[in-house]
Simulated assay, not measured.
Amino acid sequence: MSAALTAATNLAAVDVQIVGNLGTIGYGLAAIGPGIGVGIVWAAYIQSTARQPESAGLTRTYAFLGFAVSEALALLGFVVPFILQTTPS
């Protein structure tokens, strides 16, 4: 009976490590999209400012708004796996 309990404990430890590794991979994949999004937002801002320099003040506001929304998605990708993580009992 003790050997079965030890085997179950070792299996639970392996499961926690697997879930941790999958969470790390998941966050890495979740950070790709917002990284691309931030690049697109700032590229569009630079291009619009180069075409019409007098509108730089107005478009800067929208650029920071787009940046904030993209970064919020990255933070959600970081936090949600911790919220959904189940603890072994």
Rank of each mutant, 00 (worst) to 15 (best):
F78A: 15
G28Y: 09
A7T: 07
P53D: 05
I40A: 06
L73P: 01
T61Y: 04
G20L: 07
N21D: 06
V19P: 00
M1E: 12
G66C: 10
Y62L: 14
G23Y: 01
V79M: 02
G23M: 10
A7N: 10
N10P: 00
L11T: 12
G77T: 02
G20A: 05
R51M: 11
Q52D: 12
L58V: 14
G33P: 01
S2H: 10
Y27F: 15
A8K: 05
R60L: 15
Q85K: 13
T61E: 08
Q17M: 15
D15H: 06
G33Y: 01
A63Y: 03
T61S: 10
Y62D: 04
A8R: 07
M1W: 11
E71S: 09
V79K: 02
V16W: 06
Q47E: 15
T6K: 15
T9H: 13
A13K: 12
F64D: 00
T49W: 07
V41F: 06
L76R: 00
G20K: 05
R60H: 13
S55V: 13
I18V: 08
E54L: 02
A56N: 03
A3Q: 12
E54T: 07
S55K: 07
F64H: 11
Q52W: 06
T86Q: 15
A43R: 10
V14R: 05
V38I: 14
L76I: 08
I18L: 08
F82W: 08
G20T: 06
L58T: 13
T24N: 09
Q85H: 11
P34V: 02
A8M: 03
Q47G: 12
A7G: 01
P81I: 02
V16G: 00
E54Y: 01
V79W: 04
P53G: 07
L65D: 01
L84I: 15
T9G: 10
G77E: 03
S55N: 11
G35Y: 06
P53S: 06
F82L: 07
P34A: 01
A4D: 12
G35E: 04
V16Y: 06
L76Q: 07
I46Y: 14
A30V: 03
P88H: 09
L11R: 10
F78N: 09
A50V: 12
T49H: 09
G66T: 10
G66Q: 09
L11Y: 09
S2D: 14
T6R: 14
T9S: 14
V41Y: 08
Y62N: 13
P34N: 03
T87E: 10
G33Q: 06
F82K: 02
D15A: 11
G39V: 05
V16D: 09
T24E: 04
L65R: 04
G23R: 03
A63W: 03
Q85A: 14
L29R: 03
L5G: 08
T6F: 13
I83Y: 01
T9N: 13
L76G: 05
L58E: 14
T86C: 09
I83A: 03
L84S: 14
I32L: 15
